[in-house]
Simulated assay, not measured.
Amino acid sequence: MSESTLIVIPTYNEKENVVTLVNQLRQNVPEAHLLIVDDGSPDGTGALANGLAASDPQVHVLHRTTKDGLGRAYVAGFTWGLARDYDRLVQMDADLSHNPSDVPRLLAADADLVIGSRYVPGGGTVNWGTGRRVLSRGGCLYARTILGLPLQDLTGGFKCWRRAALEAVNLPEIRSNGYSFQIEMTWRALQAGFKATEVPIVFTDRVDGVSKMSKRIVFEAVGLVWRLRLSRPAAHQEPHPRTKP
């Protein structure tokens, strides 16, 4: 029996991109269901998503009344998916920075957590300035060094989760957002003994819409890394008893 897949897509003011993204996902991963988690976008993204869902039974919409961060949106989307018994849950950006044609490669990889990585051979970024490249690379190195994690891309948000790994991270306890959310989720999965792997992806900076990056997101990640490190010994990758070695 094939595994059921849900792709979780948080949105806030993404009306320029959401239709294109949904159409491309339906072409590249026709068997998957999509969940658009809209944080009350004032530009009408939510209403646009409703129209997509009305015309396609594999598209769903979860409306949230306030914008309180990427992490909260993902937690809401993952919780929705786990309650409906999806076997695998994919997370990706709504701004077309993550290529829908890469989703099948994430689904094909044999791991409990598959990370679309910019920093393994074959991966990369497009349309980034020097400052952002240095910030991203440095942030990953900082987190990897302090936490002792054997992964290259700890801040990327293109991932595929098996439900057992998501259940183990204890979603109600997650309070982080942005970069720190990505780091904390991966850290918790590895601490629980699940297997993670990276597959190369090319991240293309958004063309339409406005970036959600802020200094607050960066500083939150810096502090969270130390809180995680001091909370328990460094993570290591050993197969969880419920997964294949």
Results as ranks from 00 to 15, higher is better:
M1S: 15
T5L: 07
L6S: 04
L6P: 00
I7V: 14
P10L: 00
T11R: 03
V18A: 04
V19R: 12
V19W: 11
L21R: 05
L25P: 07
E31P: 02
E31R: 14
A32E: 03
I36R: 02
G40S: 08
G44R: 03
G44N: 01
A49N: 06
S55H: 05
P57K: 08
P57V: 09
H60V: 05
H60L: 03
L62S: 00
H63L: 14
R64H: 01
R64E: 02
K67T: 13
L70R: 15
L70H: 12
A73K: 11
A73Y: 11
Y74N: 09
V75E: 10
G77F: 00
T79H: 02
L82G: 09
R84V: 05
M92Q: 06
D95S: 15
L96W: 10
N99Q: 14
N99I: 10
D102Y: 07
D102A: 13
P104S: 02
P104H: 08
L106T: 04
A111V: 03
I115Q: 13
Y119A: 05
V120E: 00
T130W: 14
R133M: 13
L135P: 00
S136F: 15
C140K: 07
T145I: 12
I146M: 09
L147P: 03
G148K: 08
L151H: 08
D153A: 08
D153F: 12
L154G: 09
G156R: 01
G156C: 07
F158E: 03
F158M: 05
K159A: 10
W161N: 07
R162C: 14
A165F: 09
L166Q: 05
V169M: 00
I174F: 01
R175E: 14
R175Q: 14
S176I: 09
S176Q: 14
N177M: 09
N177Q: 13
S180R: 04
Q182A: 15
A189K: 07
Q191S: 11
Q191H: 11
G193M: 08
G193N: 06
F194T: 04
T197Y: 04
E198A: 01
E198V: 08
V202E: 06
T204W: 02
V210C: 12
S211P: 10
S211I: 06
K212R: 15
K212E: 15
M213V: 13
F219K: 15
V222R: 12
R229Y: 13
R232W: 02
P233F: 07
P233W: 07
Q237R: 11
P239C: 01
R242S: 13
T243W: 00
